[in-house]
Each structure stands twice: as structure tokens, then as C-alpha cells.
Computed example of a mutant assay.
Amino acid sequence: MSKAIDEVQVKQIFMLLHGMYGNSVLDKYRIGQVDEKTGEDVGMATARSVWLNGLREFDSGMVMKAIGKCAEKHKTFPPTLPEFRDLCKLFQPTKWIQQPSAPRLEMSEALRSEQAERTRQSIAQIRLRREGGVSVKPGEEGIPTLHVLIAKAVGLAGGDEIRTLMQLDERREKA
């Protein structure tokens, strides 16, 4: 999960909003009083501080997605902090809270064991495919399976699988 936003990211949000909406962002927050130390409008600095506190509960990923949604939801004017928070909430994961009155479904031990075995088999199949193996059903072992494994190996090594298999078939027929 991304970390909570910081002052630098809030400045970036204001720059993005300024890029999207022009001076209407500045007009919304500046008061015309300049801080002598920073040379910045006091209203803009205060607005950024308020936005930082108002957006602390959201991670930077949610905030950036909300910026993207601004163009769709707020076409003419920049959003206020409450409107921007609503956009952020669209991307917040839904928290599930179990209701005490909700019925609880129980699973039998046999069904639980069957499900666990299916899960183990699925995991084994995924590992086998990831490692380049071939699943073989009982009774299907032998030359055809060996050919498939050789073709995979040759293909992974950057060779010509078809030519290699044809050469193997020719050698097998001669033997």
C-alpha cells in the first residue's frame, strides 16, 4: 500500500489542478497577503496545509486516481476539498464488517478436505507449468511425453523444436 501523502505531493496536486483549471485555482485560495519569509501567498499556503490534513487518510495512489477523475467530474471549476475527498473515497477499498446477525455457513469436514485437495492440485499444476513441466496422466508416460519435454527444452534454449523432434523420430525408427 502506498504511503500517506506529504507536503510535496500536496504541492504537486495544486500544480496539477492549476494546470487543469488555470488561475481559478489561485483565485479560489489566494488572499493577496505575502509571507515575507517564503514569498508565498498566505492563503495558498494555508489551503495546502488544510488539504494536507484533509487528505491524510488517503494513500498517494488514491489521490492520484482522484486527480485523474477531476477532469470527468469537475469540468469547469476546480473541486473543493470536500469534493476532492469524495473523489478519493471512490478509490478507497471497501471495508467488510461482519454483521452479528448474519447467518454463518458451515462446511463439512469432508467438503473442506476435498476443497483443500483441489487447491493443492491446482497449486501443483501452476508450479509445474511455471517450471516448464508437463502434466502426464497415468498410462500416458513414455516416448510421446518425452518428446514434449524435449521440444520444450529445445524451444526454451532457442532452438528449432520441430526439426529436433523429427530427428528424434528418425533415429527411433532406425533403432
Results as ranks from 00 to 15, higher is better:
3 K>E: 08
4 A>Y: 07
7 E>A: 12
7 E>L: 08
9 Q>C: 02
12 Q>A: 12
18 H>M: 04
18 H>Y: 06
19 G>S: 04
28 K>C: 06
33 Q>V: 13
37 K>Q: 12
37 K>I: 08
42 V>S: 02
42 V>L: 04
44 M>L: 06
45 A>S: 05
46 T>S: 08
48 R>M: 14
53 N>Q: 09
57 E>Y: 03
61 G>P: 01
64 M>H: 12
64 M>G: 14
65 K>V: 03
70 C>L: 05
72 E>H: 13
73 K>C: 11
79 P>T: 01
79 P>S: 00
80 T>D: 10
82 P>L: 01
84 F>P: 01
87 L>F: 00
90 L>C: 09
94 T>D: 12
95 K>E: 14
95 K>S: 14
99 Q>A: 07
100 P>R: 02
104 R>P: 02
105 L>G: 09
107 M>A: 09
108 S>T: 15
113 S>C: 12
119 T>A: 12
119 T>D: 13
119 T>P: 03
120 R>I: 05
122 S>A: 12
123 I>F: 12
124 A>Y: 04
125 Q>P: 00
127 R>L: 08
128 L>Q: 05
130 R>F: 07
135 S>T: 11
135 S>G: 04
136 V>C: 11
140 E>S: 11
140 E>K: 11
141 E>I: 04
142 G>D: 02
143 I>V: 15
143 I>E: 13
145 T>F: 05
145 T>K: 03
151 A>C: 04
152 K>R: 14
156 L>I: 05
158 G>Q: 03
165 L>Q: 02
167 Q>W: 09
167 Q>F: 10
168 L>G: 03
168 L>A: 07
174 K>N: 05
